[in-house]
């Protein structure tokens, strides 16, 4: 069984994004970049399935500028067998990404696609669901547990107020939530080995997908800052302030 894991290069999750002074976008010059945390969980899950003997091949794919190959190499170092880079310098939206991934799915025919539920830059939470729709597959979003048996995958999903389990016919699409697993780190020998693993580059505009923008980014601004509060001396003063000043208790 083959698994496809689409990943995204994003700002490192420890770095605070700063808005450009002209309010055109977030400033990413000289900012540390990394694999999106939910994508790391997706890679880890695919590798564990391979280690368990359920999966025979793990393919990592990313869409973006040349620099994104760095994250593909990380995926290879973690244990992916091969990588595909769909190269573009355009700023693409979730719908475009899903359409390009649908082309890869068509070509590679993976039984399972595992993606992060959301990227920590655009915070859209769309690509997996869109890909499932475009490829007419069932979807198991926000997964905290996967159980593959014959032609089915059981997905336990993190939903508001609890956990929901659904069973999907394979081929299917799964998106990862935090509790699914704890990703490993790549070892130095594996990082060296990853340099020799296959990495195929495909030009995004060669795939016959309409990449015209569907949204326009009008502006980006800083969120409204909270005005500084006060430090209270003790619990008595705190309770007093909450009762008489803030009137919330």
């Amino acid at each position: 069984m083959k698994v496809l894991v689409p990943i995204k290069r994003v700002i490192d999750y420890n770095v605070k994004a700063r808005v450009k002074s002209d309010n055109s976008d977030v400033d990413l010059t000289n900012v540390k970049m990394a694999m999106n945390p939910f994508c790391e969980i997706a890679i880890e899950e695919a590798i564990r399935l391979k280690e368990a003997g359920t999966v025979t091949e793990v393919i990592a794919v990313t869409i973006g500028a040349k620099a994104a190959q760095e994250q593909l190499r990380t995926a290879l170092a973690l244990g992916a067998d091969k990588a595909i880079h769909i190269e573009t310098d355009e700023k693409l939206e979730s719908l475009h990404i899903a359409k390009l991934l649908a082309k890869v799915v068509e070509k590679e025919a993976p039984e399972l696609v595992i993606l992060g539920k959301q990227s920590i830059d655009s915070d859209n939470n769309q690509t997996g669901q869109m890909l499932a729709a475009l490829t007419n597959r069932g979807q198991g979003t926000f997964a905290s547990k996967l159980d593959i048996d014959n032609a089915m995958v059981k997905v336990t999903r993190e939903v508001d107020g609890g956990l929901q389990t659904v069973e999907l016919k394979l081929p299917a699409v799964v998106t990862t939530d935090l509790r699914l697993n704890e990703p490993r780190y790549a070892s130095l020998p594996n990082i060296m080995k990853a340099k020799r693993k296959p990495l195929e580059v495909i030009a995004a505009d060669s795939l016959g997908v309409d990449l015209a923008p569907r949204t326009q980014l009008v502006s980006v601004s800083e969120p409204v800052k909270r005005s500084g509060g006060i430090i209270v001396d003790d619990v008595a003063q705190l309770v007093e302030k909450l009762k008489t000043e803030a009137k919330v208790i």
Binding site: S94, L95, N125, M130, L131, A133, L134, V159, D160
Partner: peptide
Amino acid sequence: TTGKNFMPRVAALLDVAQISE
């Protein structure tokens, strides 16, 4: 988690972008 689950599917089937959250 319900809206986040089905809405992007609707958007893709309509061939339109979704504006999230």
